[in-house]
Amino acid sequence: MKTAVETQDLNLFYGDFQALKNINLRVKENSITALIGPSGCGKSTLLRTFNRMNDLIEGVRIEGRIVIEGENILAGGTDLVTLRKKVGMVFQRPNPFPLSIEENILFAPKIHKTAAKADHERIVEESLKSVLLWDNLKDKLGKNALNLTLEQQQRLCIARLLPVKPEILLMDEPCSALDPIATERIEELMRVLKEHYTILIVTHNMQQAARVSDDTGFMLLGELIEFASTGSIFTNPSDQRTNDYITGRFG
């Protein structure tokens, strides 16, 4: 399987505090990779390095390399707009624009001018169908997205990424605001999406990581302690700290 993202000796500092320590990780293309670990272990920080969201935080210093499609995205001269089109992100708290549902979906294609007007209707329909919102919302496309339920808002946020045809989707606790049935449907959606995208998910829900991901990385105090296939992490982890964390002995 081809590699979608690779980190090489990645270190990240918030001022004097080192939040990521020598991370070497290889994410396979068209797979779902889960990052797990206790709060503050650096998993969200690691996720945010993949589309350079940490650049927005003052005092951040990053060392090492992150290679996406053969290019080191940490190198100077990286076009962040192109990078963030390629690497989309969904957050814990749904954050639709205070616009209509339709305008949310078309926001990126309009800004990036990636689609002709004639295609707009099709893009809205396809994107909403991908996240199982079409049937409920097809008659309310002009409605303000902020009036949707949290669950619908989150699905809309995933749908909103798709029109610019990203290659990698970053999801930071995407289901933490959702009920179990909605969570299951988002997980099903992730399995469908991985045919076309590479997905990295940060989750506190270990059962979710076990259910949905192909590979799992366990992080602790800024280190990637163990990275392996999800089946092997959850049945036979090689590191005692991984075993203790996933069996609930700490964390």
Binding site: M206, Q207, A210, I233, F234, T235, N236, P237, T242, N243, I246, T247
Partner: peptide
């Protein structure tokens, strides 16, 4: 409990 790892084994 959906046990994992050592507990599951």
């Amino acid at each position: 409990y959906q046990p994992t790892a050592g507990d599951l084994r």
